[in-house]
């Protein structure tokens, strides 16, 4: 336990924990709705944009966060209009996002050729996170942005839940379904941009989808599910950071994903076992009205 006490003495660790706390809560909460609305792959697409935006900012020496947010928010708006209007198929969307990734590769090479090898960690940082390199200023920004995102999500939670479950009925009750959907994707874009520094663009999906996937197995009450998703994301980031501190060969983002995956296996495995055993033991009760 002395090791853990020593952990908090380091500024880089405090910054990492601070930034990760905010981002985990926001990502976990957003992830609940992503899974509910079947928009997990929209988040994947946004993470591609975040990758390319991030390396572009690196390559051209621009303020990373602002560029990221602009790029991803733009992508979110486009995605929302695509989903609402035409039926852009699998292939079209995939082709578009492959192109975006390809552009990112170009920016990485521009960045690498413009900087000495000791600095090329920037590229890896965009891909897989650089959580132990977060400054106190960046940590503060992360917390503020996360508070904003979480507040936004909590405010729209109820109507968004209704719209996600039954859009036609929600619209008849006065809910602006399209506007809410767009606002939600914009929040996801902002959270994804912030999350790049913690998990890296390639692993954002883990922090958003997995906690919700676990929570789904644990509860059917919506607000409990939201809280659980946020909580599980938080537990995963803290344990991941601690694990990585204690065993430095493990990169922190890997440690977080490992914890998340382990929790996921545990939850789905337990549910499957419980379900198969109750099916064989208990007779189904008669249902009224059938």
């Amino acid at each position: 336990m002395d090791v853990l006490n020593g952990m908090f003495a380091h500024e880089f660790m405090r910054n990492a924990l601070l930034a990760s706390t905010g981002i985990a809560l926001a990502a976990g909460l957003a992830g609940y709705f992503l899974v509910l609305r079947g928009q997990v792959f929209a988040a994947d697409a946004l993470s591609h944009v975040a990758f390319t935006g991030g390396v572009a900012a690196l390559a051209f020496g621009v303020n990373e966060l602002l560029g990221l947010i602009v790029a991803t928010v733009l992508a979110a708006v486009i995605l929302n209009s695509l989903a609402v209007s035409s039926r852009a198929g699998d292939v079209e969307i995939g082709v578009l996002f492959a192109l975006i990734l390809g552009l990112g590769v170009l920016f990485i090479s521009i960045y690498v050729s413009g900087h000495s090898t000791s600095n090329s960690q920037g590229g890896v940082g965009v891909l897989f996170g650089s959580v132990f390199g977060i400054s106190s200023g960046q940590a503060r920004t992360a917390v503020l942005v996360s508070i904003g995102a979480v507040t936004c999500l909590l405010v729209i939670a109820r109507p968004l839940l209704y719209a996600s479950v039954d859009a036609a009925a929600a619209a008849a009750q006065g809910i602006r379904v399209g506007v809410l959907g767009g606002a939600f994707l914009v929040v996801v874009a902002v959270v994804a941009s912030e999350a790049v520094q913690v998990t890296g663009a390639l692993l954002i999906l883990g922090l958003m989808a997995t906690p919700a996937a676990v929570a789904r197995n644990l509860t059917t009450r919506p607000y409990v599910g939201m809280a659980l998703s946020a909580g599980i994301a938080l537990v995963a980031t803290w344990s991941g950071l601690t694990l990585s501190y204690v065993a430095p060969t493990l990169p922190p983002s890997f440690a977080m994903m490992a914890v998340l995956f382990g929790l996921y296996l545990l939850a789905t495995g337990t549910v499957t076992i419980v379900r198969t055993s109750t099916r064989t033991r208990v007779k189904p009760s008669p249902v009224i009205g059938e």
Binding site: V40, L203, A213, R216, P251
Partner: peptide, 23 residues
């Protein structure tokens, strides 16, 4: 919903695993 959440989960973990090996 469970399928897409599962694919996202597995995808993230595999990428992280690859990153571990590379590092």
């Amino acid at each position: 919903r469970a399928e897409s959440a599962a694919i996202g989960t597995i995808q993230a973990f595999l990428l992280a695993l690859g990153f571990l090996f590379v590092s």
